[in-house]
Design a protein around this nucleic acid. Structure first.
Lengths: 152, 152
DNA sequence: ATATTTCATGCTAAAGCTCACCAAAAAAGC
DNA sequence: GCTTTTTTGGTGAGCTTTAGCATGAAATAT
């Protein structure tokens, strides 16, 4: 449980791949799909969505493809996940703005909302660049330390 | 996305309700279901599972029902969620022990595993007692502060 | 014994996710 | 201008998960 969808995984992988190849002006959806062995059609849709929200810049035609619209350091994992999977709510209660449909007694959501914000904060603190660096510097101890406080 | 199931919600609500009524020796599934307006049959299954993992103690027969097997302070939200929804994995990659099925190139899972542990840590730091107190002391500033560190 | 309640299954809809197919528009190269 | 490459958009089928219901068996207090 509490896992994100394959779409989000694919999206993160694709952005990481783009971040690792800054020299090429654009990479096609098929290039990325082949590199990771993920379904091309599905990845295409994902990249389209990421383009629509402004994380990617698309270029049609030959030698076209996708490229990051910002520096990899400026794109958080949270943005990617949010763009693909929608708003993240840990409780299945609030599906929008209003609270529980029939149960006004869902007294759980308040404390869990804090948890929600904490998780969001963690994901916001991780950039695509972090994901890309992870591979090159596998096992290398990293000095950067994100501290997240949770107040109940 | 990234939301837990209604079952987990119901489970947390039920345990919180039990924690709020320590005077009664046992509460039936129907009592809890009626109190929150959640389907009784579904809640029964959830409580059965929580009993099986040892979080609850069941008592059959008349005036029977369920009761916490430990102090509410000793039961974490993580245990409840884990018991109901199974192990929490943020990536859809590792479905067990082995990594990605066809893609050995899922270079995302390592950094996300850290996120996973962080979230688990947050959930472990929250007890049923915390949930129960939340209602009585709504708006009251709480001194306890759980600190979770995330090292990328 | 009997009524009440938990326990243990199995089953059926409903929803979401994954993935594939197809046609159309855009841009570059010949 | 035509072809090729690539994005864009719609649609639908197969699958898994989830939510909820129904039913019967075991346990227990009165």
């Amino acid at each position: 449980m509490l896992k994100l969808t394959k779409k989000a995984d694919y999206g993160l992988m694709a952005l990481k791949y783009l971040a690792e190849h800054p020299e090429t002006p654009a990479l096609s959806a098929k290039d990325v799909a082949d590199a990771y062995g993920i379904p091309a059609q599905l990845l295409a849709k994902i990249l389209q969505r990421l383009t629509k929200v402004g994380l990617l810049r698309s270029h049609a035609g030959m030698n076209g493809g996708y490229a990051l619209s910002r520096d990899a350091r400026q794109i958080s994992a949270f943005e990617v996940i949010h763009a693909i999977d929608g708003p993240l709510f840990i409780t299945s209660c609030f599906k929008g703005e209003k609270s529980c449909d029939l149960t006004p007694s869902c007294t759980i959501k308040e404390p869990l909302a804090r948890v929600n914000e904490t998780i969001a904060g963690v994901l916001k603190s991780i950039s695509i660049q972090d994901l890309a660096e992870q591979e090159h510097a596998a096992g290398k101890a990293h000095d950067a330390q994100g501290l997240v406080s949770l107040t109940l």
